[in-house]
Design a protein around this nucleic acid. Structure first.
Lengths: 125, 125
DNA sequence: CACCTATATAGACGCTTGTCAATATAAGGT
DNA sequence: ACCTTATATTGACAAGCGTCTATATAGGTG
């Protein structure tokens, strides 16, 4: 955000930058919401958890998840909370156990956003 | 990862948990790679930057980006580096300026992964 | 060459995150 | 009622992140 309206100033370089005349398209709140979801996916253990849940939705209790990682039970619980608060997974208690499932709408929101990005410049898969 | 093979132990509860017999599907390196990309998108400013680039690919120099945020130039530079290192954007120098573009393959990788997740449990958009 | 401009890097500093051990909570069994 | 088991919460601590100011680098101009 340097020189822009320098028309009478002959000191300006012959080519000008900062010519893009536009504003941000995403409302700040939406950028923040998307960022929170992306951030929740921003840890290898949480990626694996979501992957596991999406394969065995509804059949996975916390101790099943614990069994896959060399991490303490509170740490797993913490990662599950991050995912829950981001709206990416949901919990359901059955008896003594808590079963986790992916939250379809949360993941779909990420997916839709990335697709919208893709259909905007010239890159498709 | 508590009681599991307790068959002779009559102390076990009548219903058992941890019955899921499977292992992680994603290689650790892939989970790490995906997590790095997700993490890079895990900040509102970086979401907005990627959004901007995907709309005006190739025409956006750093000072154009700076103009949209109330952040110092080094901070923008830092966010751009995070995105670059995650493989989500690329930089091209033209004269004195550096123009940024989204990295189609990076974004496509995220998109494909989320789609793969979706086609695995019963949730489509 | 000397100077200017655009971007990147380095260093500092407060805030957040990931992890664990210890403890609390809540559901079930006896 | 009491004990046991599964999960969540708390508190602590090291490591990482986001931001700034100050400085370096690299390309362009006169």
């Amino acid at each position: 955000m340097h020189s822009k309206p320098a028309d009478e100033l002959t000191l300006t370089p012959n080519v000008r930058c900062c010519t893009l005349q536009t504003s941000l398209r995403l409302p700040q709140s939406e950028a923040a919401g998307l960022a929170e979801m992306f951030k929740a996916m921003g840890h290898p253990v949480r990626v694996q958890i979501v992957d596991l849940l999406s394969r065995f939705g509804g059949q996975v209790c916390v101790c099943d998840i614990e069994a896959h990682f060399a991490l303490s039970q509170p740490t797993i619980s913490h990662h599950l909370r991050v995912l829950r608060q981001a709206g990416l997974v949901e919990a359901e208690q059955r008896g003594l156990w808590v079963y986790y499932v992916t939250a379809p709408e949360g993941l779909a929101r990420l997916r839709r956003y990335l697709s919208a990005l893709a259909h905007q410049d010239a890159s498709d898969d």
